[in-house]
Write a protein that binds this DNA or RNA. Structure first.
Lengths: 175, 175
DNA sequence: CAAGTTCACTTGAAGATTCAAGTGACAACA
DNA sequence: TGTTGTCACTTGAATCTTCAAGTGAACTTG
């Protein structure tokens, strides 16, 4: 109900830099994967998660959770990967409403081929420029923000903060 | 040419957490903006950047740079925002191949309406859970990684690291 | 100063994502 | 045991993004 609190100069600078990173880092990794392996970032991690599983198989909805995505998106994407022969799907024999996503040999081979280039890029752009201390701090930061996000999902739309309009000529990026 | 270097446990944990954040934070902000103002994250920042300009106008390509996006995407998006009456475009009188993107009154009003809710969400999910020290560190981290990314863009595709396949059953997310 | 080139976009088509609606198990309850 | 409901997806349509090709204005150069 009150005048909204805008960001301080420092907060804004940190936020802007971080937003830029949010855009650029995935884009840089995508472009490497796309060029070298015709995979999106997202596709890569879906294949990677499958390859981590005991039988290289996993329920769709678990996979969706791991990949931080909705089922619908995953389902469409699996359809595409299936056409390429990288995965297949079969109903869970124990429970007909589950679907198992399965990494094929061809899918595994493709992933194995893509992995070194991708990991090298992560090393190059991310890991290698940061100190172990940076990494620890970043992990703490990620955890804190993620915890807050997850906590806030548990609430309804209406009890979220904010909705008053500012007075005067505000700068909406912040400043 | 050599066996690829995989990530250490700590590096992997930090990377995974950060990737999760990379997915979740934008998604959380988008959903607030979408619900409350029918704007995407990207649209919001395009409008915000325009509103920051002297005449609330700016060249398409400068705007594309600020918004970290390609011209094509921006152009399509401006088309949509134009239909909604939030922006308009006119050729730069001084140079016929430039286009000025201009925030309309309606666009400004819509932004002014959207801003408090969005900023509050940024505060709530991001700023408020971090210490000033966290913010400083994060800013340094962002700068370092961004610098590395920009530096690496200056090189050709072929001289980027990597392309050897690993031996045995590797875990491609890392570990 | 004309012809070719580059620049700053725009456009169209193909591909991906999102949203809402559908479908076929299984579960719960009467 | 049937009927209603819920769950775990799948599907189709609308939207958005990406990629390649197109367009017209300005620059270059012979």
């Amino acid at each position: 109900m009150s005048e909204p609190r805008w960001l301080t100069t420092d907060q804004l600078a940190a936020w802007r830099g971080f937003m830029r990173l949010l855009q650029r880092l995935p884009a840089a990794l995508e472009s490497q994967l796309q060029q070298d392996s015709k995979l999106s970032f997202f596709e890569y991690y879906v294949l990677a998660h499958l390859s981590d599983q005991p039988e290289r198989r996993m329920r769709m909805s678990e996979l969706a959770l791991l990949a931080n995505t909705e089922l619908s998106r995953l389902s469409h994407m699996m359809g595409r990967l299936e056409k390429r022969g990288f995965v297949r799907r079969e109903p869970d024999p124990h429970n007909g409403r589950y679907t198992q996503a399965i990494l094929t040999e061809a899918g595994y081979a493709h992933l194995a081929d893509a992995a070194p280039g991708h990991v090298a890029r992560v090393q190059d752009l991310f890991v290698d420029v940061l100190t172990p201390d940076d990494l620890r701090t970043l992990q703490r930061i990620s955890d804190k923000v993620l915890a807050r996000i997850e906590h806030s999902q548990g609430r309804t739309t209406s009890d979220r903060p904010a909705d008053r309009a500012p007075k005067g000529a505000a700068r909406f990026g912040g400043r």
